[in-house]
Design a protein around this nucleic acid. Structure first.
Lengths: 362, 362
DNA sequence: GTCGTTGACAGACACGTTTCTGCAAGGTCA
DNA sequence: TGACCTTGCAGAAACGTGTCTGTCAACGAC
């Protein structure tokens, strides 16, 4: 009687509130909440009745109100690095796309959604969204965003071992040094005498670790380093750097490229200089792209396993958010995979250059 | 005196509320809110003082509370299509990555953040996040998610002209029919006599429109259609389909591939059959990838301009959210760009197959 | 001297949930 | 038969903002 069926003045026609459901079902707000969330102690009949009424009214609980009350939003931030003017860039395209895809998928499977955020400290955007935690990709040393998030008590998991004393909750990374050493050994085994490196000028951990590992390997085997660096976010610069590397007087007979497009860049440069791959030049690059299976010749690639990384990062983050005591280590090293193709293998018996055969020959 | 300096029992050490700021500044909650949001009528001295105190306390307004109060969350959904088991997939990789990048960038520039959501109607995820509006990529006919969102009164902008009578707020798309016709004419001009198509088995609008345009073009010029279809989300199937297309007795002398990896797939298949590109086979594919500038030979590609599309979609959506009366049309057609490279041009004077020359020859 | 007007702020409510506390009815046991 | 527990549900207090309404002092005009 005293209950207001009109659910106050501001009742939007398209949005039914929990009060409307309670009124329509003839029960209290508490009962509706308990029935829909599977809490409290209610007989199944009441539970079913409330659910049926809620469905009929098309009731959707307000995410904002739930977040305000429970303190959990079900949202995870995904922070990506920024280069120069571009407010936001997916460098290492296929890597990031795959990683983001796996992360999104893993998050959704546990009921969370991902919010894409820039690494810049634009407070107005960061503070406008209620996050339960954040995934940070390759944070820089003393990253202010990470510090701020940690200060607020939010868990932060990073893709990439944090440099310095960045206080992240957990991290996942490849063993980049081991990967580079493995590739260099692989190339040396294939007969390379002077191995060159195509690297980046940026200061991220991946570039730094890989370059350092290369330099140390050179020192160990007594080879002079032969490398060219370029800003990795500029695709044209990569082609130029590949060209420079092969134009040097101390031209390498094998090259490892740290970034995704380096394979085609190096292949094109090799063609310009009349170098045959793999006869005159062995080639490996780090890439997640499948195009290298079908280039001429197919190019050996190093996969960083972004899907495993994306999945692992999100699992760790959600474990931390929910306070789950999982048996997952908080510092995970994901093994890389070297996909060996023609470009890094000298053909042991030198066959004639065979013209492609049509399937009828088989 | 009666004011509680301890800000109630549940005061988290890392989180200062608006009450704490008010108490520390010696003013009321109203004054703090007005000072920080630039409303009300306050002397500049008070405004500055409040801001200074808020900064000192590291005050960040609660996004959830603000959303609950104002009804605006500053979040935009980005819905991507789902294929089979994969809960979530970025097909047409580079296209989606570029589109998402541009959309994120445009949204951030206007103070919004993007949430990645699956097209499946998993209500638990959708209703857990407060959205101001949604971008839908290539919605299917009678998409239940779109209907539900519209029913809730949320604006929905689609990338791709909506099929049927889907009630979206606005849409942006390329003129796929014109693009296909342009490519077919381009290939015919280059001397193609029988043009084949590599297409998909999925029912999305892009595939449908492109295939239909191809069939109509064939009918008009009196050519028998020569095409192979495969599930676009399976990369291996693409290679097989490319092989099938070139193995047919009525082998085409030119092929257009609708999907990103088709270029390398077709190139590899052509090599297997001993077909030279472009001499024996003209090639064009739809792709945003830059690898086709450096393949041997470079492959002509059609760009759908995903960055312009991503930007336009977000601008339209935010205009609708904010009720801005912009002069932007609610149905936008973005022109495509054909990047003509070697693979679709017969060399007018038939030169000898020149071995790659080293730069010293120049 | 009183009355409207304006500036500067405070009190209180509402947003829509979740959840703690509590109450009545009915069953069980000493 | 009362003490006590369980069941089924209702009331009301938060969560942290934004904002409407109202108060108090100062001030000029009649």
């Amino acid at each position: 009687m005293s209950r207001a069926e009109t659910s106050r003045r501001g009742s939007r026609p398209g949005r039914a509130g929990i009060r409307d459901v309670a009124a329509a079902a003839g029960v209290s707000i508490t009962t509706v909440s308990d029935a829909l969330n599977g809490k409290g102690r209610l007989p199944d009949a009441t539970r079913r009745h409330v659910r049926e009424v809620a469905d009929r009214l098309g009731y959707r609980p307000s995410a904002a109100a739930r977040t305000l009350r429970t303190g959990k939003s079900g949202l995870i931030g995904l922070t990506v690095t920024t280069y120069g003017d571009e407010p936001f860039t997916f460098t290492e395209f296929a890597y990031f796309a795959e990683m983001a895809r796996a992360a999104t998928s893993a998050a959704l499977a546990r009921g969370y959604a991902l919010v894409i955020l820039p690494a810049t400290s634009r407070h107005d955007v960061w503070s406008n969204v209620a996050l339960d935690g954040t995934v940070v990709i390759d944070p820089s040393d003393q990253d202010p965003v990470v510090s701020e998030l940690v200060r607020q008590g939010l868990p932060v998991v990073s893709d990439g071992r944090p440099a310095g004393s960045l206080p992240v909750t957990a991290w996942v990374d490849n063993d980049h040094e081991a990967a580079v050493l493995g590739i260099l050994d692989h190339l040396a085994d294939a007969g390379a005498r002077r191995i060159g490196l195509l690297t980046g000028t940026t200061t991220d951990t991946y570039t730094h670790l890989s370059t350092t590992a290369y330099l140390r390997w050179c020192e160990r085997v007594g080879q002079d380093p032969v490398y060219e660096a370029y800003p990795a976010h500029d695709p044209c610069a990569g082609a130029v750097a590949a060209d420079r590397l092969l134009a040097r007087p101390d031209r390498p007979d094998a090259v490892y490229g740290l970034f995704d497009p380096n394979g085609t860049d190096l292949l094109a440069a090799a063609r310009r200089y009349g170098l045959r791959v793999p006869d005159d030049l062995l080639l490996v690059c780090c890439s997640e792209s499948t195009v290298y299976a079908n280039t001429e010749p197919p190019i050996t690639t190093l996969s960083l396993k972004p899907r495993r990384i994306g999945t692992a990062v999100v699992q760790l983050l959600i474990d931390a958010i929910e306070g789950v005591e999982s048996d997952r280590p908080v510092e995970q090293v994901i093994p890389t995979e070297l996909i060996v193709r023609t470009s890094s293998q000298r053909r042991p018996p030198r066959t004639t250059v065979s013209p492609p055969r049509s399937p009828e020959d088989r």
